[in-house]
């Protein structure tokens, strides 16, 4: 009885509705799979927040909630848009605009992450591996040119922030409110969060009095150049302790920046 009714109901109208539904299904699934393109093509090379798993695992585990965005004291973390495909809503850092300066000390973003996309296995800045700094334009480096630097590192309009321990131990301030006067520009070394921590530890004052905060390796230093005229020319050299936080890229007063972050190896995306 019910079978007879069923065959009766298969009118052209319900067949049309069925076809429509198939089209809808194919359309929606294809639309969502378009998200594969930016991911597979490696269009997106981002600096991710501290503790981020390798890119594939990271995108799999990130629930796209932005809790890391909310806890960052320097607001370094932003969320990706739809042009990054499956990465939509995932956090990244644009170091030139605002780097991670570890001014939270305790890796707040890692603690905030509900899914472990930012792995909870790290506790200290020097344990992170966001990428590595690369000196991409040595020819325009002020230190290489033997020049000093005076004034606001990134100009009066730059909104980026850093924590300057000597100004305020707890709150980051805009970089523009902290002008410099340097005989030879060493901003990348001077502001390096790893180098700052090493100096504090050597002075017997590790951050929060916690010796575990002391980085085991240097991250960056200025080396004298061999054919220097008058011995004043120096060049920045990146060392094994670099975690790719991006502060040197952010603070570099030259346009375009002399130092830039390379995250491809750390993200497991080297092609």
């Amino acid at each position: 009885m019910s079978k007879v009714q069923k065959t009766k109901r298969k009118t052209p109208r319900s067949r049309r509705s069925f076809l429509r539904t198939v089209v809808l299904g194919v359309g929606l699934v294809s639309a969502s799979l378009l998200g594969f393109i930016p991911v597979l093509q490696h269009w997106v090379k981002r600096l991710r927040p501290p503790g981020a798993l390798l890119e594939q695992k990271f995108l799999a585990s990130c629930i796209k909630c932005g809790q890391c965005v909310q806890v960052c004291p320097v607001e370094a973390i932003k969320l990706a848009d739809l042009d990054e495909g499956f990465g939509v809503g995932s956090p990244y850092i644009d170091a030139r605009a605002q780097a991670c300066d570890f001014s939270c000390d305790g890796l707040q973003c890692v603690l905030a992450c509900p899914t472990g996309a930012l792995t909870h296995e790290i506790n200290y800045p020097h344990e992170t591996d966001m990428g590595i700094a690369k000196v991409v334009r040595p020819e325009s480096c002020l230190a290489v040119l033997g020049q000093g630097f005076k004034g606001q590192a990134r100009g009066a309009k730059f909104t980026g922030k850093l924590r300057y321990d000597e100004v305020d131990r707890w709150n980051p301030i805009p970089v523009r409110e902290h002008p410099y006067d340097l005989e030879l520009c060493d901003l990348c070394v001077r502001q390096c969060p790893i180098e700052i921590r090493i100096a504090q530890c050597e002075a017997g004052k590790p951050p929060s009095g916690d010796k575990n905060q002391c980085p085991p390796q240097h991250a960056i230093r200025l080396e004298p150049m061999e054919n220097g005229q008058g011995g004043k020319r120096m060049r920045p050299v990146i060392l094994d302790g670099c975690v790719g936080c991006g502060v040197c890229e952010m603070i570099c007063p030259v346009e375009p920046t002399v130092i830039a972050m390379d995250s491809s190896k750390s993200r497991g995306m080297s092609v």
Partner: peptide, 9 residues
């Protein structure tokens, strides 16, 4: 795929 495909849409 190992990606949260639905979140994209």
């Amino acid at each position: 795929t190992g990606y949260t495909v639905f979140e994209t849409v």
